[in-house]
Design a protein around this nucleic acid. Structure first.
Lengths: 334, 334
DNA sequence: CTGAAAGCGCTTACAG
DNA sequence: CTGAAAGCGCTTACAG
């Protein structure tokens, strides 16, 4: 069953492809096509259930009206929510989104960028993986519209949408201190990315100023072996450093697994150990006591990323800008 | 900065587009292109960093190597996880995925189907909304490869990947009865879709057989006003039907909000009210007591949907088949 | 006001 | 073994 094309319409009406195309694109004004003819064409278009082939249009125009979105893992609610907002905004602007998972692998990210380029996407919104600088550099060199979100490469002239990670963990650590904690641990990913480094810095500096910093209380965990690493880290903290009285979890995923471990060990929260997390989770509502957390403005991150990207597309030029959003510390009543 | 095309390669090598194309597609065997020439072409392809334009290829071939995935809301972990597996499988087969959110609106679903068709997707995997039959019918009429997942339209000859919802709630209800519950409530969406109807039927029949069915204990909630509806429903159950001793939550989202309401009202689970849910949630690990749940095999659903879709694409024909997966009841130790 | 033609970047018969 | 040509479905100058 062949689909009806512009040619079919043109033949049926007895007119040229060009005329049909003009009408379809609403360019019949400008003294181009007569009103009657336009009406007649629209009539036939409806009758024959014509639907344009956007692929053909894209090939011609060089614009696919498609954006590539790269996240680590779409099944993670943080990225799922980010994808949701990115998509909603882009939809309004007439763009479709191809979402792909890098699984935190730089080579995977490289492959997906290749793939998306060959599909002629008009721009990229990327949550970059560790060690992926080279792939991003290629995009910049090709002058392809690009926005990094959630993380960035510090020495690279990209448009970045980030939160103020340093400020966030400063406040979070401060809170634990204010509540009387003296031995505060940090559970964080072992990667070298700046967003993690900043979170760590906020923690370290705050504790150093308070003169209670102890580097043994920082436990780094690996993305690939997360569950066991966290279990091991929490066990260490509880058994070996018996006096730990606070833990800052550097991401939501780490927090959820970490809290699970604490609960398994029958640690009472916050009586024995007080905690602070990144991002809210339904899970927290199920705790007997409310948990303070750093609220990342995911919706705004998505919106801002889209806004900058669309600007870049319009101006045909990448922007080097750090859009830093504030992440507020939410402190539920006790 | 123009991208290099086949023509550029051809010119540089001093050969025709056709020859380059053949080499690029690995069709130089079949006694077509000489070994030396093939090597020379590949050389230049590398030098010039040639990347094929898949849009052009798609236009020519009529295959976009793209699949449209329609879910209600990608930020919901159920759909996020489904999307994850669907994408992983399709990626292996060389397909990209455009994910769109219907937001449970049939008109929205219709629009997205239109859009995806105009982008010449090769097939659809759809979590259909209520009242969307007409749009699906059009896809079938156009003979576009299509698989429905999670839900279906009963009178329609589509390929469906579902769980056995009836069996699932039968087992879940049975469990509550076995634990001694006599007054078991059901919290369920107020829509007319068969997957919900089946869940309800499993509940009703089991209770009827046990002679403890009371239709007043079924509370229907609306997707658009979920939070308040659930709060109200739970309050009713607890305050008005003071003897309710068990609740079956018909989806994970309903369960999470429902449990929140119960906890807010200081109901002790399972001492005062015993519950069963659909799907695991991190949240459950935070409850002082483990919660039994119906485990939907999301990974398998995704895989199976892709498998059937690829088959349809290959055979150029839609399949009318109900692939019903078993959802097991997981009963943690108490 | 409308048509004929060229072109977007590719692939695929068809000649030779 | 290789080239010239047509065509996928559209858009966009250019003529008239």
């Amino acid at each position: 069953m062949k689909r009806v094309s512009i040619k079919d319409i043109a033949q049926k009406v007895g007119v040229s492809n060009a005329t049909v195309s003009l009408v379809l694109n609403g360019k019949e004004k400008q003294g181009r096509v007569s009103k009657d003819m336009a009406e007649r064409i629209r009539q036939v278009v409806r009758e024959m259930h014509y639907q344009p082939n956007r692929l053909a249009r894209s090939l011609q125009s060089g614009k696919s009206q498609t954006i590539g979105l790269l996240v680590a893992d779409i099944s993670n609610p943080f990225f799922g929510t980010l994808a949701f907002y990115v998509q909603n905004e882009l939809e309004k602007a007439g763009y479709a989104v191809i979402i792909m998972n890098t699984n935190e692998s730089d080579t995977q990210m490289g492959k997906m960028i290749e793939l998306l380029r060959s599909r002629q996407v008009d721009g990229f919104i990327i949550v970059p993986t560790e060690f992926g600088e080279e792939y991003i550099r290629q995009l910049l060199e090709a002058n392809l519209p690009l926005v990094l979100v959630d993380r960035c490469y510090p020495d690279m002239e990209t448009a970045n949408v980030l939160i103020d990670n340093y400020q966030a963990t400063r406040e979070a650590t401060r809170l634990l201190l204010d509540k009387g904690c003296k031995r505060i641990a940090l559970l964080i990913y072992d990667n070298s990315q700046p967003h993690m480094a900043e979170r760590k810095r906020g923690y370290v500096e705050t504790l150093t100023q308070a003169k209670v910093y102890d580097k043994n209380l920082i436990k780094a965990v690996n993305y690939r072996t997360l569950e066991e690493d966290i279990q091991y880290a929490v066990t260490c903290l509880v058994k070996q450093e018996k006096d730990v009285d606070g833990i800052l979890f550097a991401t939501n995923t780490i927090a959820i697994m970490g809290i699970k471990s604490l609960l398994n060990m029958r640690i009472r929260i916050p009586d024995e150990i007080r905690i602070v997390c990144f991002d809210k989770s339904d899970a927290f509502d199920f705790m007997p006591v409310a948990i303070p957390y750093i609220h990342q403005p995911i919706a705004n991150m998505g919106r801002k990323a889209v806004e900058i990207l669309l600007e870049e597309i319009e101006n045909k030029a990448n922007k080097a800008v750090n859009c830093q959003l504030y992440a507020s510390l939410i402190q539920p009543m006790e």
